[in-house]
C-alpha cells in the first residue's frame, strides 16, 4: 500500500432510504495526513457517508476506497487500519476505563500499549473508574482511546464534541490535533464552524446529501468576497438596501426581520460612513456587531439558511 494513494476516495456515492435520498452522488478525496471536516445541517447525510466508509452501511451506488482498500475485497484490512467513534455508541457502563481500552486492544493485530493510550487521552486518574461514572467529555475521550489503541492510519470521528462544554471541546481538539501531528488522517463531522476552522485543513459543506462547496476554511470564506460581516438593528426609520449597498466597502446586503447584515471588505471605511448616513436620517443604532466572516456565513451565503436551522 503506497502512501501516495489517497487516505479516502469516494466516487458517486448514493444511499436511499425509501423515498429519502440520504446521500446523493457524493464525491470526495482526502489526502494522507489531512484533517478533513464534513460540515452540514441535521440530516445532511454526514453520518450515512461516514458509516459507509466504515463498512457499517452499504451504498446503493458508487465506490469507496479506504487507504487503497475496498470493503468488498479486504474488510478486515480496512477495519484493522481505521479508528472510529460513532455518533451514539454507549460503552458498557459496568466496565472500567482500563478494562474497556484493554478489550478494544485485544481486537487489533497492530496496537499501542494500553497505558500509553490512556495517558494520551488524559484519563490516567480515571483508569479504575467505571464508564458509567465518567462525565460526557471523559466518555468521549475514552471513545477516542478505543479508536487510538489500534494504532490507526485513518480516523473517522462522527460529531466527537457534540453536547460537550467548551473546556471539554478544547481538550478534544488538542487530542485530535495530536493525532494529526503524528501523521494520521482524520475525517471528522461537526456542526460547529469554529471547530472546523480550528481543526481542519480542508472542509466540505454537505447539504441534502451533496457537497456544495469544499476547500480550506480560508478558501471557502473568500468565496464570500468579503472578510467582515457587520450586523445591526435600528431604532427609528428603516434604510433602503440600495443606499446601504452604495456605502464604501460593502459587497452584499441582507435584510431580514429588521436585522441588517452587510458583507464588508474595508470595515474601517464602512462603519464611519454608516454612522454618517444614520446621523443625517435621525435614526439611531439599537445594536451593532461586527465579526470576521466564518464558515457559518459561507453556509448562509450558499443556502440562504443557517446551519442550525436544519
Amino acid at each position: 500500500m503506497s502512501t501516495t494513494t489517497p487516505a479516502l476516495s469516494i466516487r458517486g456515492l448514493v444511499k436511499r432510504y425509501g423515498n429519502i435520498v440520504a446521500v446523493d452522488g457524493l464525491d470526495l478525496e482526502v489526502a494522507r495526513g489531512e484533517c478533513f471536516g464534513l460540515l452540514g445541517p441535521n440530516g445532511a447525510g454526514k453520518t450515512t457517508t461516514i458509516e459507509i466508509c466504515e463498512g457499517l452501511n452499504n451504498p446503493d451506488d458508487g465506490e469507496v476506497v479506504v487507504l487503497g482498500m475496498r470493503h468488498r475485497d479486504n474488510p478486515l484490512g480496512i477495519r484493522a487500519a481505521i479508528g472510529i467513534s460513532l455518533q451514539e455508541t454507549q460503552l458498557t457502563e459496568k466496565l472500567t476505563v482500563e478494562e474497556t481500552v484493554r478489550l478494544f486492544h485485544s481486537f487489533y493485530p497492530r496496537r499501542r500499549p494500553v497505558d500509553e493510550v490512556i495517558a494520551a487521552v488524559q484519563l490516567d486518574e480515571k483508569r479504575t473508574a467505571r464508564v458509567g461514572q465518567l462525565s460526557g467529555g471523559q466518555k468521549q475521550r475514552l471513545a477516542l482511546a478505543c479508536a487510538l489503541v489500534g494504532d490507526p492510519d485513518l480516523f473517522f470521528l462522527d460529531e466527537p464534541t457534540t453536547g460537550l462544554d467548551p473546556q471539554s471541546r478544547r481538550q478534544l481538539w488538542d487530542l485530535i490535533g495530536r493525532f494529526k501531528a503524528e501523521g494520521r488522517t482524520v475525517v471528522i463531522t461537526t456542526h460547529y464552524m469554529d471547530e472546523a476552522e480550528h481543526l481542519c485543513d480542508r472542509v466540505a459543506i454537505v447539504d441534502h446529501g451533496k457537497i456544495i462547496a469544499q476547500g480550506t476554511p480560508r478558501q471557502l470564506i473568500s468565496l464570500l468576497g468579503t472578510e467582515h460581516v457587520v450586523e445591526f438593528r435600528l431604532d427609528g426609520l428603516a434604510l433602503g438596501e440600495t443606499e446601504l449597498a452604495a456605502l464604501p466597502g460593502v459587497t452584499g446586503v441582507q435584510v431580514k426581520d429588521g436585522r441588517y447584515q452587510l458583507d464588508v471588505t474595508m470595515i474601517h471605511q464602512t462603519i464611519p460612513a454608516l454612522l454618517a448616513l444614520l446621523h443625517g436620517r435621525d435614526s439611531a443604532l439599537s445594536e451593532l456587531t461586527t465579526h470576521t466572516a466564518t464558515l457559518e456565513d459561507v453556509f448562509v451565503h450558499l443556502t440562504g439558511r443557517h446551519l442550525r436551522d436544519g
Binding site: L56, L86, T89, T92, F104, F107, C146
Partner: peptide
Amino acid sequence: QRRKKLLRRFVATPM
C-alpha cells in the same frame, strides 16, 4: 449491546 450501538462499534473493529 445492539440497542446501545456497541455491537456496531465492535463490528467496525477487526474483532
